[in-house]
């Protein structure tokens, strides 16, 4: 379980004025445990595709099926619950809640899932230890470096035990050392939890680590390479 099937997916912006086809008929299948990079030039449709898979945007046409659930059939409230329980997000700008500490940021997602306080604090601490910032758990995002914030973001994404983690340009704001550390970390998490990671990226270092590289051009899959 944990596979994504994307069929004939289209997304057109500004339909009534000058239509822009961001995604133009993508068919894809991503299986559980994959460590996949979606690459392509700016404006090729990577982020739009990721947003639709994450239920943040709705397709103009086509279908996204995740574990037999058709994303398009969910209303906005169901989508929020679906995202909470199935999808973890890692954003380019980290996007942690600035008024919460690292520990609280990670635990907050579990609180939304209704996990008891002791259990969520224990899990959050474990995750923060795993991502290597056990000594920063009481720091707020403003007190952490970019790399540290992105580690917290990864821990937060993992906290809900999601089937997928969607990472939109996760290394774009990081230096090489932080990028390398973060990729190692995500790969480790991928191995350990069998969580599916899908990145949209321009970053060559991410592409090198990825086990599958899907290239998108003008809203279409132009190549799909599975590494051995």
């Amino acid at each position: 379980m944990g596979s994504i099937k994307i069929s004939n997916l289209h997304k057109v912006y500004n339909e009534s004025k000058v239509p822009v086809k961001a995604v133009n008929g993508i068919d894809l299948e991503i299986k559980q445990g994959e460590f996949t990079a979606i690459v392509g030039p700016s404006g090729s449709g990577k982020t739009t595709l990721l947003n639709m898979v994450g239920g943040l945007d709705s397709p103009t046409m086509g279908d996204i099926e995740i574990d037999n659930v058709h994303i398009g059939s969910l209303n906005s409230k169901e989508l929020i619950t679906y995202r909470l329980n199935n999808i973890g997000f890692v954003f380019q700008s980290y996007n942690l809640i600035p008024v919460l500490t690292a520990l609280e940021n990670v635990a907050f997602i579990m609180e939304l899932q209704g996990i008891p306080k002791d259990e969520r604090n224990k899990t959050a601490k474990e995750l923060l230890e795993k991502v290597g910032i056990a000594d920063k758990i009481n720091d707020r995002p403003g007190e952490l470096s970019g790399g540290q914030q992105q580690r917290v973001a990864v821990a937060r994404a993992l906290a809900s035990k999601p089937k997928f983690i969607l990472a939109d340009e996760p290394t774009a704001n990081l230096d090489s050392k932080s990028t390398s550390d973060l990729l190692d970390l995500m790969q480790q998490m991928n191995d350990e939890y069998d969580t599916t990671f899908i990145f949209s990226t321009h970053d060559q270092r991410v592409m090198e680590k990825a086990r599958r590289i899907i290239t998108i051009d003008d809203g279409l899959v132009s190549s799909d390479i599975l590494k051995n």
């Binding site: 994450g54 943040l56 906005s76 409230k77 929020i80 619950t81 995202r83 909470l84 329980n85 973890g88 997000f89 954003f91 996007n95 809640i97 600035p98 997602i109 939304l112 899932q113 937060r156 809900s160």
Partner: peptide, 16 residues
């Protein structure tokens, strides 16, 4: 606005 959007994106109910 962005912060609100992120909170909803990661699973915070709009009513909350």
């Amino acid at each position: 606005r962005r912060e609100f959007a992120i909170m909803v994106a990661v699973g915070l109910n709009r009513s909350k």
